[in-house]
Design a protein around this nucleic acid. Structure first.
Lengths: 329, 329
DNA sequence: TCCAGCAACTTGAACGTTCCAATCCTGCCG
DNA sequence: CGGCAGGATTGGAACGTTCAAGTTGCTGGA
């Protein structure tokens, strides 16, 4: 292995001082054109890379952002995180940031991890996914003025911190509109019990669209926990009605998959739309609402680096999902 | 925010020198019992955490390991990586290591990332997934004596570097044995074209088990690229035979899902077994061979930290997968 | 009595970078 | 032609840790 190339090596070769090399890297405009070129040539020739640890020690910034990786609670929805992480890593990399993973079993433990990461690694910021009403984590971070973004809007105060989210209501509205246009009138919704921010949001798009079309959504609405079995049960329930729906919008692909199974078993003709466009949906040909995860990730990084560069945080970002049409609707 | 707590703060409070505090942390045995206790109390009282950047600058070690996150080529198999990453982060965390992500579009770019990460972040080691015959990445890393482990055995020379893998052959053998025991005789295999290490391995378990049972596997074997559509096509092909199989083992859940669809369309009665136990398998009730990903991740970290601590690398690790029985077999 | 040997602890230096204050140019004005 | 403004460049110090080489104090053998 060749000798380590430091800023001093570059300086010697370019016949300038250490500081000038540093300036070329961090404040190019204050260095004279010709000197800058000479230094840059030396950098390339020697293959110099700034040592982060040293830089970090001086500046207190690590160019590292942390994301929690969850234990894939529900298998189906797991791969959403996967795609999100990829997008995050890619966008972060483009601006010179790197992504660090951590795990935590609950909010309390997660906060302990924050303080560890901040003290030991001088972490620059955090990306949180899935925040709840009155989340203790965002409160902790905000109190210490640690930069962070959330994927998922804060359900209490929309202006409390930077966030990026997908407009779930717009997604279900789009699905419902499409079904209305294909001639459906009795369009059910199988979603989660009221009270969860994400779930209520998704339900509302369907609800409003039906109302706008002059249809009473009331009797068509169903609530249940997430899961394939639950979806199947609810769909069977709906099929047993005197006037069963001809289409159903679901709050997740798990529910939709269950519904689909019930429909097929019964030999019925009911259009089914899921949510999240998971691999499962692609595999079984399920029409589903797709979250633009790469874009979400990109905007998260943007917001975070914005704050890190000292800007006040931009307005939050709400992205439109898109409907991926397959065989089931 | 309170003043930063450094080793000097602790030293003052415990009435010892910096170095003694450092020794308590890195070589406790050379410090007198009573002194050690005093220092440790001060550490706890002040909430001291060693600054990694400073430590790294001196020692050249970052306690960081890097893993590539792939763009989820094939959606179905994506979530495998997800679970692997979680396991990795968890096990690494337990020994004081952290996991850093990176992306790369091809091998050449990946090597460029290595050299960047090594120079800028003093990375301690890499975890590679899915190596090929004559992989340029392992060669590059080995040439520079950078510690790394692969998830997936090196297909050329089994002793060339530490690795952890799942015994795919044992998995398909187990599936085939189970099918034989349930009375099946004509058991097909739908796998990838010969030449890929992983694919050949999975095929061989099925092949050997059938041979051992006195059955000629030849006419039952099928080769195709991965994918749901491919699986469906191959299964239809098999069903059109004069003596169609009564069961089929597949090299992936994608293929199995396609096969399953063909079987159901044809109204046939054919048992289907997939490979990887992806969320899709769980969702549709597909029997599948499950890789012990958490264990794989744990052993990867073990191997890597072993090398980092200066031990010669242990013998490679080959783990047994298990068969998850659901409705399709 | 003297000092070797050892355990326990301390001190100065170094890792590679950036901050800060100081110095060196260069051209321009009076 | 001296002085001065201001841009370009430089050298010393500091970030928090560990390494290497010290110092101190004690035990025990000649």
């Amino acid at each position: 292995m060749a000798q380590k190339v430091t800023i001093a090596t570059v300086a010697r070769r370019a016949q300038v001082s250490r500081q000038t090399v540093s300036n070329v890297l961090n404040a190019p405009h204050i260095v004279r054109e010709e000197t800058r070129r000479r230094v840059q040539e030396a950098i390339v020739a020697l293959g110099y890379r700034a040592n982060q640890a040293a830089r970090q020690m001086r500046t207190g910034r690590s160019r590292l952002i942390a994301v929690r990786i969850q234990p894939t609670r529900d298998g189906i929805n797991g791969s959403v995180l996967d795609r999100f992480l990829h997008g995050l890593t890619e966008t972060a990399g483009a601006t010179g940031y790197r992504v660090l993973l951590y795990t935590a079993d609950d909010d309390g433990q997660e906060i302990a991890v924050y303080s560890d990461l901040l003290a030991a690694y001088d972490l620059d910021g955090f990306v949180l996914t899935g925040t709840d009403h009155g989340d203790p984590r965002t409160a902790w971070l905000a109190a210490r003025k640690v930069p962070f973004v959330t994927f998922g809007r804060p359900w209490d105060d929309l202006e409390s911190h930077p966030w990026v989210d997908v407009d779930g209501a717009a997604g279900t509205a789009q699905a419902t509109r499409m079904l209305l246009e294909t001639g459906h009138r009795r369009i059910s919704f199988i979603g989660w019990p009221k009270g969860s921010g994400v779930g209520d949001d998704r339900r509302s798009g369907w609800y409003r669209t039906l109302r706008a079309a002059g249809i009473d959504p009331g009797p068509l609405d169903r609530e249940t926990a997430d899961g394939v079995g639950e979806g199947e049960r609810m769909m069977n329930d709906l099929l047993a009605e005197p006037e069963p729906p001809t289409a159903v919008v679901c709050a997740s692909d798990s529910l939709a998959l269950g519904a689909l199974r019930a429909v097929r078993c019964a030999g019925a003709e009911v259009a089914v739309v899921g949510f999240d466009d998971t691999p499962v949906a692609a595999a079984v040909g399920l029409t589903s609402v797709s979250q633009p995860l790469a874009a979400v990730a990109a905007r998260c990084v943007e917001q975070l680096t914005g704050v890190l560069d000292g800007h006040d945080f931009d307005s939050p970002v709400l992205l439109e999902p898109s409907l991926v049409r397959r065989h089931t609707a």
